[in-house]
């Protein structure tokens, strides 16, 4: 069993953050696993699996100077992580329309009750500040079948200016 940690970094975006962090970790013999980095509201954010055969406080000592110099907040958790445990989504739900409070809560509440296990969720606000447009894309596994989700989505009440579409994902393997 390998020793995995989850590193979370948040801060003002600037060039070469990933390069600097990963080279420090490489020098400490860390292995990197799965990661997800994205810019959210102009902030740099990343969640990164790190395999390291030592205690968390050593990782802490290693990360502190580089994170301080990049003005990043960081957080390290030991996790029961393992690689090669991907789940494959079989449905995708896209939501878009006027940006208003409660869209995510309403859509995800209905989907969860109908058996959706969310694997991926991305959302964005496009349009202009006067006329914001909300866009959300969810991928997941329909634990109770796709029809259950389709039925449930009929009861979603986000108003006429929000559209919710479900489509099946049929992965091609060849």
């Amino acid at each position: 069993m390998k020793n995995w940690f989850m590193l979370t970094l948040v801060g003002k975006d600037r060039p070469a953050i990933v390069a600097k962090i990963s080279s420090v970790l490489f020098q400490e013999n860390c292995n990197l696993g799965e990661a997800s980095m994205t810019r959210l509201g102009g902030n740099f954010t990343i969640m990164l699996m790190i395999q390291f055969d030592g205690p968390a406080d050593i990782l802490d000592h290693v990360l502190q100077p580089v994170c301080d110099s990049l003005k990043l907040r960081y957080h390290v958790d030991q996790i029961d992580g393992e690689l090669h445990h991907h789940l494959e989504p079989n449905v995708q739900i896209s939501v878009h329309g006027a940006d208003k409070a409660g869209i995510v809560a309403e859509v995800t509440r209905v989907l969860a009750a109908a058996g959706l296990d969310i694997l991926n969720l991305e959302s964005d606000v496009a349009g202009t500040s006067e006329n914001p447009l909300y866009i959300m894309n969810i991928e997941g596994v329909a634990e109770k079948g796709v029809e259950a989700l389709n039925q449930a989505l009929k009861s979603v009440d986000c108003g006429e200016d929000v559209e919710v579409h479900l489509s099946e994902i049929d992965i091609l393997r060849g």
């Binding site: 896209s94 866009i135 894309n137 579409h165 049929d170 992965i171 091609l172």
Partner: peptide, 22 residues
């Protein structure tokens, strides 16, 4: 990219959402 798929470049044809259905 995963994010790229939020904005399909080609319009969807008909009711069937072909672009992401596969």
């Amino acid at each position: 990219s995963r994010r790229g798929s939020l904005f399909p470049r080609t319009p969807l044809r008909g009711v069937e959402k072909k672009a992401d259905a596969c």
